[in-house]
């Protein structure tokens, strides 16, 4: 074995990023700047959605241009369940709504898994550009369904009047809600790290590098990819539920292809297949949005320039710049 430093440079960068992300809202809270806590929460929730996508896109090389579907579905689960609870009218078959976040997350995970399974099973019969287009098509179907379904606000979206509850925590307080999101992000990162290091991750990453090689050792790429796609969708779904609670609002825009593109941009900015790539990407993205958005409404033009530079000169994204090339044992 080659000599390995106790902590790799990437680990140090990751720890610093995690601490910065925690320190920022704590400081803002101490100074009573609620807005910055919300900003940090936005980073954390977008990062969580992108960690989910990173399983499919980063590890598996499956460029899903339809992950907004799962992000939005998670959001609608939160919105619909809380609306029914708020209005005290039962959902289908007499099932009650709920304002409990853990229950909402569980439902979001199940719904996203159930929807992702057939979408993945069909989409994964294709590769490359066709895969991108077919995932986009599925997401757009769900988008237009939400737009045209008046029961839950249609195009206007659905408001969540009071943020959903978490046992023992006052979620109306911005810092508490941030901490819930932060803990979930850390758990998701832990799961991503475990998956990547396990046999599943080895097969998934080998399939990204060379699907023929994977098949030649007797592992069917399709099965591995389908599981990755479903797990990826579930994680993005939880982020969607949190996003709805953050904004106290869910609308079809969460399901639109802009959102899918945004999630991909986060990963490219941060560094794909890297553990903290989505975190770094979300930090950079939201800061650009905030800093440039205050100066010009055409801030996305500058985002485009930055993205261009990353793709041309820093293929490994922000993590690649900070921590060097990815290593595989």
């Amino acid at each position: 074995m080659p000599p390995k430093p106790r902590l790799s440079r990437e680990t140090v960068v990751n720890i610093l990023l995690a601490l910065m992300l925690l320190a920022f809202p704590l400081g803002a809270s101490a100074m009573g700047e609620t807005f910055y806590i919300t900003l940090a929460t936005r980073i954390v929730v977008l990062a969580l959605a992108a960690v989910g996508l990173n399983i499919a896109l980063g590890l598996g090389g499956l460029v899903s241009f339809g992950h907004a579907a799962f992000f939005g579905l998670g959001g609608y689960v939160a919105g619909i369940l809380s609306t029914h609870a708020f209005n005290a009218e039962p959902l289908l078959f007499g099932i009650e709504g709920t304002t409990s976040m853990p229950v909402i997350w569980l439902v979001a995970v199940m719904i996203c898994g159930i929807i992702a399974l057939p979408i993945g099973a069909i989409s994964l019969r294709t590769t490359g550009v066709y895969f991108i287009m077919i995932t986009l098509a599925f997401a757009q179907m769900i988008y237009f369904f939400a737009v045209s379904w008046p029961a839950y606000g249609g195009e206007d979206g659905l408001s969540i009047y009071v943020r959903n509850e978490f046992p023992g925590v006052n979620t109306a307080q911005p810092l508490s809600f941030f901490l819930i999101c932060y803990v979930l992000l850390m758990l998701a990162l832990g799961l991503f790290w475990l998956l990547r290091g396990a046999r599943f991750g080895a097969a998934l990453e080998a399939g990204r590098q060379n699907a023929t090689r994977l098949a030649a050792v007797g592992i069917a790429p399709f099965n591995i990819r389908l599981v990755a796609f479903v797990v990826s969708a579930m994680m993005t779904g939880i982020a969607g539920a949190l996003f709805a609670d953050l904004n106290k609002f869910v609308s079809p825009s969460m399901l639109s292809w802009h959102m899918s593109g945004e999630l991909i941009v986060l990963i490219i900015l941060g560094g794909k297949a890297r553990l903290f790539g989505p975190v770094a990407g979300a930090m950079l993205y939201v800061l650009i949005e905030y800093a440039l958005g205050g100066i010009t409404e055409h801030w996305q033009f500058f985002l485009g320039l930055i993205l261009l530079c990353v793709v041309l000169f820093a293929r490994g994204g922000l993590l690649g710049l900070l921590a060097g090339k990815a290593r595989h044992g």
């Binding site: 046999r199 080895a202 990453e205 080998a206 590098q209 090689r213 994977l214 050792v217 007797g218």
Partner: peptide, 26 residues
């Protein structure tokens, strides 16, 4: 036809893992 980013060892480990059975271990 190899997994180019993986080390030689990991390329062979993939085969050992395939021989041992399911890769759905997480």
């Amino acid at each position: 036809s190899l997994a180019p980013e993986f080390s030689s060892l990991r390329n062979v480990m993939l085969a050992v893992q395939a021989k041992q059975g399911s890769s759905l271990r997480f």
